[in-house]
Simulated assay, not measured.
Amino acid sequence: MKELIIDNRRIGAEHAPYIIAEMSANHNGSIETAFKIIEMAKRCGADAVKMQSYTADTITLNSDKADFQIEGGLWDGQTLYELYQSAYTPWEWHKPLFEKARSLGITMFSSPFDTTAVDMLEDLNTPAYKIASFEAIDLPLIKYVAQTGKPLIISTGMANDIEIMEAIDAAKSGGCKQLAILHCVSGYPAPASDYNLRTIQDMQQRFGLLTGLSDHTLDNTTAIASVALGANIIEKHVTLDRDGGGPDDSFSLEELELKHLCEASRTCWESLGQVDYGRKSSEKGNAQFRRSLYFVKPLKAGDIITPDSVRSVRPGYGLPPKMYDQVIGKKVTQDVGFATAINLDILSN
């Protein structure tokens, strides 16, 4: 698969990386904050804002049994229901958020976590879907999303190669024609050393799909490095305030960091270019400063050129230094002075 198109934006090796600003729970229960995150993403140059579509009741069960208790990490001490009840994006917000994004000219789509979320997002005419890493093994959900015919991005955190292939097969069997996958480490935050970015190239070859990165490290280094390895899509959590106290704030990018990601990832992609050994446009003015052969003492017409009369120096208006041995022993056809460039028209056998 060479290219993906989301909301008229082409995604692939011939295009700058597609930057997804993941809002997640960083609205912290305020639709006004959600609006501001969309505005920030647009200012920074992101291609899309993504949210997550679930309720506590559609993603888990209201139980305090041990299975549903979170131990350790950012959300230690909460039940799953408590976490998702505080983190979800109310469904009645979706329409105004989509409208806000459209009014600003930035794409918005979402990760659905059950079929009712897919139905709701279809009513809003979402341009694409994202399957979250934790749902990559939910093959019935993937097939249901695929049946919409919309472009689909699947994040692969925690999934092994067999599970990734199963998710891809589910998407294709469901009718998905535009599919991409994201290399991901589902740690919050994740250390850069866990990312093993060379996996991106292996995924491209093994699965034959556009491949990107869902990055949960604390800065942009890993994301930008992934572009050099062929990542076509970069997803990063974003926030207005890393110290805002929300579930995902602490490992999210603030505005200046998101702006840097958008700019630096594009610069990295532009620098990849094509295989090209020719002289570049920025070098043309400096070619004169390369080394060449010059006379370092005056000679009379008919004199034989000896090693002590020639040197390789800058600038580059004379013969190239590789012709030194051919020049030595020849005669000059005219008088030459010190610091005269050596050219074939003043040499004879």
Rank of each mutant, 00 (worst) to 15 (best):
Glu3Cys: 13
Asn8Tyr: 11
Ser30Ala: 10
Glu32Leu: 13
Ala34Gly: 08
Glu39Thr: 13
Gly45Phe: 04
Gly45Lys: 10
Asp47Leu: 04
Val49His: 05
Ser53Ile: 06
Thr55Gly: 05
Thr55Asp: 02
Thr60Pro: 01
Asn62His: 14
Asp64Phe: 04
Lys65Asp: 14
Asp67Ala: 12
Ile70Lys: 10
Gly77Met: 09
Ser86Ala: 11
Trp91Cys: 09
His94Tyr: 11
Thr107Tyr: 04
Pro112Ser: 08
Leu124Val: 07
Ser133Tyr: 03
Phe134Trp: 12
Ala136Ile: 09
Leu141Phe: 02
Tyr144Asn: 12
Ile164Glu: 01
Glu166Asn: 15
Ala171Gln: 06
Ser173Glu: 15
Gly175Ile: 00
Cys176Glu: 05
Cys176Arg: 12
Leu179Val: 10
Asp194Ile: 09
Asp202Gly: 10
Met203Val: 00
Leu210Lys: 06
Leu210Gln: 10
His216Pro: 02
Thr222Phe: 03
Gly230Trp: 05
Glu235Gln: 05
Val238Phe: 09
Thr239Asp: 01
Thr239Tyr: 08
Leu258Ser: 03
Glu270Cys: 10
Glu283Leu: 11
Asn286Lys: 14
Gln288Ile: 15
Pro298Trp: 11
Pro298Lys: 14
Ala301Leu: 07
Gly302Glu: 05
Ser309Asn: 11
Val310Pro: 01
Arg311Tyr: 05
Pro321Ile: 07
Met323Ser: 13
Gly329Pro: 01
Lys330Leu: 09
Lys331Pro: 01
Phe338Glu: 14
Leu344Cys: 11
